[in-house]
Design a binder for these strands. Structure first.
Length: 456
RNA sequence: GGCAGGGUGGCUCAGUGGCUACGGCGGAGGACUGCAAAUCCUUUAUUCGCGAGUUCGAUUCUCGCCCCUGCCUCCA
């Protein structure tokens, strides 16, 4: 089965065929760098990391572009609040972003353009829009996009301009020809960061940067554009309007949107204030647990975030590590192809849930084979290939089960003492030692090769 | 109000026009063990929100209804 992807614009799964054989251009909307990333951002990172990995796995040369929005009202406000320069804030937040993304095991995109480094492209695109009659300068001096001039407006999100107007709760801005018109270039106030442009000193609107940066890196027509569901409208709709009206290309051919992270069935968001930053969560949970948690649900479905769900992801991941631990004790790694069921799952719109089911089945078969001392070389190869691709169970097994424990010498001494006691059939003493450690959260496991321990 | 997505076992989460509805967590029993832990085996939904229709046959398709969530304003 060839790769099928759900394309938001057609609301259907489609066979994926790249524009240029063997190559994929993919643009994903990144973050506005004014604060730490929360778990919702983690989902975008992980989802598109998996998509990127899978595209490469099936042989594509992927140009994965993800932007940083480093100029915007919220950034200006935050920098002022903290009394620091804008680029100090954005650099700090970009560094934090990388810490989080790296911890979560996400590969770096091939290009990570910053809006402030692409002013020329944005201005050129706005000029083209003005020339073609799709943009105008408003009474306030801002350059606005004239939504009515773009016939296909609303196609991606399935919206009808007139319905939007009737349902609009937004205050009417009478400098706009149409309430839906949006800013392309915003005049700067004296204190604000500004760039020269044909319309005066100012800064770009949010939407234009993605149109400009995606097209400048990937061309006016490219394969995949992704981001969170909430970006569908108006952000992605506006990107399409800008890019298609300014260039003669078709912009993105496949639109991929990931579902939200919810808390108590409500969307996690800044405005609701019900968010956890990635770094907060990582104080309690290993980053791989968060990754596992994300992979357990299909990327387009909502994902309910809770301690309980993370605990379950941890337990499930422990199971995979238990298998790895047993593998480490036995055979050498052999290379094996990914199992067909796994490949089919991933080709079916990146179905990581099913892919994990394959991994767990494999884990069981492997444990059983190990118990029965049968030849498991092929299974080990498959197991390893899957975990590597998904980016889970990639840490050292001892580190995983014992990491962060400082008192290992004492534990080892107690285990040795218990072994002596067991030898002498002094089970009371042996059990006392085990209970003592259990009370500290150390669980002992007696195996044929001796006793090992792990943190509960 | 418009549009979009969803309601599957105690929880979670896949999936399919028809053999025994995937996996994880949890529960029960068993094997192994001195006892545990880990692992393995068995077991845990006459049933996939409700009603009707299409069909030889629907959880899967169509229609209606109920409920949930999201977008329609910045938001991953």
């Amino acid at each position: 089965m060839s790769l099928q992807v759900y394309n938001t614009i057609s609301r259907n799964k489609e066979t994926f065929t790249p524009l240029v054989e063997g190559k994929v251009g993919m643009y994903v909307c990144g973050v506005t760098v004014y604060d730490y990333c929360h778990v919702g951002h983690a989902r975008v990172m992980i989802v598109f990391d998996i998509i990127n990995r899978w595209l490469k796995q099936i042989g594509y040369d992927v140009d994965y572009v993800r932007n940083f929005t480093d100029v915007d009202d919220k950034i200006i406000a935050r920098a002022a609040e903290r009394g620091i320069a804008i680029d100090q804030l954005t650099n700090e937040m970009i560094a934090a972003f990388y810490e989080d993304a790296d911890a979560l095991g996400c590969d770096r995109p091939t290009h990570e353009p910053r809006a402030t480094a692409h002013m020329d492209e944005m201005i050129a695109m706005i000029e083209a829009l003005v020339q073609r009659g799709c943009a105008y300068v408003s009474a306030s001096g801002d350059v606005l996009y004239a939504v009515r001039e773009f016939a296909a407006y609303g196609k991606l999100s399935g919206k009808n301009i007139d319905d939007l107007e009737s349902g609009s709760r937004v205050d009417v801005d009478n400098t706009k020809r149409d309430p839906l018109d949006f800013v392309l270039w915003k005049m700067a106030k004296p204190e604000e960061p500004a760039w020269d442009s044909p319309w005066g000193r100012g800064r770009p609107g949010w939407h234009i940067e993605c149109s400009a940066m995606s097209c400048s890196h990937l061309g006016s027509t490219f394969d995949i554009h992704g981001g969170g569901m909430d970006l569908k409208f108006p952000h992605h709709e506006n990107e399409i309007a800008q890019a298609c009206a300014a260039n003669d290309g078709n912009f993105a051919r496949y639109w991929l949107h990931n579902g939200f992270v919810n808390i108590n069935s409500e969307k996690m968001s800044k405005s609701l204030g019900n968010f956890f930053t990635i770094r907060e969560v990582l104080k309690t949970y290993h980053p791989e647990v968060l990754r596992m948690f994300m992979l357990g649900t299909h990327y387009r479905s909502p994902l309910d975030f809770s301690d309980r769900a993370l605990d379950e992801a941890k337990t499930a991941l422990d199971r995979i590590y238990e298998t790895r631990k047993r593998i480490a004790e036995t055979a050498a790694i052999v290379d094996a192809a990914l199992p067909a069921r796994f490949v089919d799952a991933m080709n079916d719109d990146f179905n990581t849930t099913e892919a994990l089911a394959v991994l767990f089945d494999l884990s069981r078969a492997l444990n059983k084979g190990l118990n029965e001392k049968s030849d498991v070389a092929e299974l080990i190869g498959q197991f390893t290939a899957i975990t590597k691709l998904l980016g889970i169970a990639r840490h050292d097994v001892n580190e995983w089960f014992q990491g962060g424990e400082s008192d290992t010498d004492r534990i080892d001494a107690l285990i040795a003492e218990r072994a002596e006691a067991k030898k002498a059939r002094d089970f009371a003493r042996a059990d006392a030692i085990r209970n003592e450690l259990a009370a500290e959260g150390i669980v002992l496991e007696d195996t044929a090769a001796g006793t090992t321990w792990k943190k509960a």
